[in-house]
Design a protein around this nucleic acid. Structure first.
Length: 407
DNA sequence: AATGGGCCCAACCGCCGCTAT
DNA sequence: TATAGCGGCGGTTGGGCCCAT
């Protein structure tokens, strides 16, 4: 299956943009906004390829682009993010407001990569950025950050094959499912798994998400899991009264540094898993007890509709979900300073990407735990009570999410 | 002053993921 | 389910500039 070229090659201007072309493009975008790049040249009267217009706008004409030299602080951040993420320039650029991926890529290739190389050769015995100099400047880098060899975090969509989300009555299974060292066998009965209307909430292996996707995913091929994704996104933001969404922006840098500092879980997956097995069993027991206590007092706890036979909790659930889909907007806004919004079909893996720099692994584990718990809790209400009502709730969850996510 | 080499960076190219149909 | 199309990403290119000879 061939792809037609993005534009006709004949009659198209190439090379450097003239001031007049820039003005036409800026004026057009000012009126019509970004997007529809393919049609833009014709509509705007530009003899340019749509992709060329997009690039010109994103890398040069955008009003929020920061001009001037890259500061020492920015440079250090680039180095550290590159250590963490590898050549994923757009992600790195997302952490440097006003800087474009192209600019950072160029800066890396022309300045930093050589110095990193030199650092590896000349300074192999000394940890840190000892050999990293920039026109007389020396980066003030924290000890323990090795410029040379590193293992980057690679996020990748993970195919969801297994069912691990447990039923309400066996809450301990929730913890089992997120513990990398424990048995990942599905706690759900086959009959429950076959319930197609519920499957979109359960077709998900948290073990894979945690180990392969969050920590260092490799060898997995993504696939679309839109229905489930929406729900988990919903759960992700809605299930955590202790999740300080409004403070995320302020915590971005601190959490990034923290993520980089935590060499222990990045350098060796197996080692991390071992550590996790050793320490998490006890942690989860403690968390479980704490949760039990908290649940008894939590006014937001949603009781099964079956208890009093009314549907009143449906409205309560709707209200909770709605309030947290608003939180999702905040997360998006603060996690995407470049304005690069994710589109309506929010996937959990995109969310993971967004927050991977903001959250440590432990936070992530806790996040998935709460998400799983909430989804399970919510669904059981309808499984227990009213099979006819459940699809409408599922639909409502999906549609309300779509409404709440900025285009 | 002419020339050649190196550097910088805007722009291009090709591929890929996602979405709509 | 298959396919077409769009937007985005990362690697590469090449023109212009600077500097040493």
């Amino acid at each position: 299956m061939g792809r037609r070229p993005c534009c006709a090659k004949v009659g198209i201007n190439r090379g450097a943009w003239s001031a007049r072309e820039d003005k036409i493009l800026m004026d057009y975008i000012k009126v019509h906004g970004e997007g529809k790049w393919r049609d833009l040249p014709e509509r705007a009267g530009l003899k340019r390829c749509g992709k060329s217009c997009r690039l010109r706008w994103l890398n040069y004409l955008r009003p929020d682009i920061k001009r001037g030299n890259i500061s020492v602080e920015e440079e250090e951040l680039i180095v550290r993010l590159h250590k963490l993420l590898g050549n994923r320039w757009s992600l790195i650029a997302g952490r440097l407001p006003g800087r474009t991926d192209n600019e950072i890529k160029n800066y890396w290739n022309t300045n930093l990569s050589k110095r990193v190389q030199g650092d590896k050769i000349n300074d192999s015995n000394e940890p840190g950025l000892g050999g990293l100099e920039n026109k007389g400047r020396k980066l003030d880098c924290k000890p323990g950050i090795d410029m040379g060899s590193h293992q980057v975090i690679r996020t990748k969509a993970v195919g969801c094959k297994k069912v691990v989300v447990p039923w309400q009555q066996d809450k301990q299974m929730i913890h089992k499912s997120i513990d990398p060292g424990r048995d990942s066998e599905s706690p759900c009965s086959s009959a429950q798994q076959e319930d197609s209307s519920f499957r979109f909430l359960t077709d998900f292996d948290i073990n894979e998400l945690l180990i392969s996707d969050v920590i260092c995913s490799e060898g997995h091929q993504g696939k679309q899991i839109n229905e489930w994704e929406s729900t988990v996104v919903d759960g992700e933001v809605q299930t955590q009264p202790d999740f300080p969404v409004s403070e995320h922006g302020a915590k971005l840098d601190a959490s990034t540094n923290e993520a980089i500092r935590r060499e222990d879980w990045r350098n060796d997956d197996d080692e991390w898993v071992k550590k996790g097995v050793a320490t998490r069993s006890q942690e989860f027991q403690e968390e479980e007890e704490a949760e039990k206590e908290a649940e008894e007092e939590d006014p937001r706890e949603v009781k099964p509709v079956a208890e009093d036979g009314s549907d009143g909790d449906f409205e309560k659930i709707k209200s909770l979900l709605h309030s947290h889909t608003q939180d999702l907007e905040i997360i998006q806004r603060e996690a995407c300073p470049t304005g690069q919004h994710y589109n309506n079909n929010m996937s959990v893996f995109r969310i993971v990407k967004m927050i991977e720099l903001m959250k440590t692994q432990d936070e992530m584990t806790s996040l998935v735990s709460r998400t799983t718990s909430y989804i399970t809790q919510t669904c059981n209400i309808f499984i227990d009570k009213d099979k006819d009502l459940r699809p409408s709730v599922e639909n409502w969850i999906s549609s309300s999410l779509l409404d709440s996510v900025p285009a």
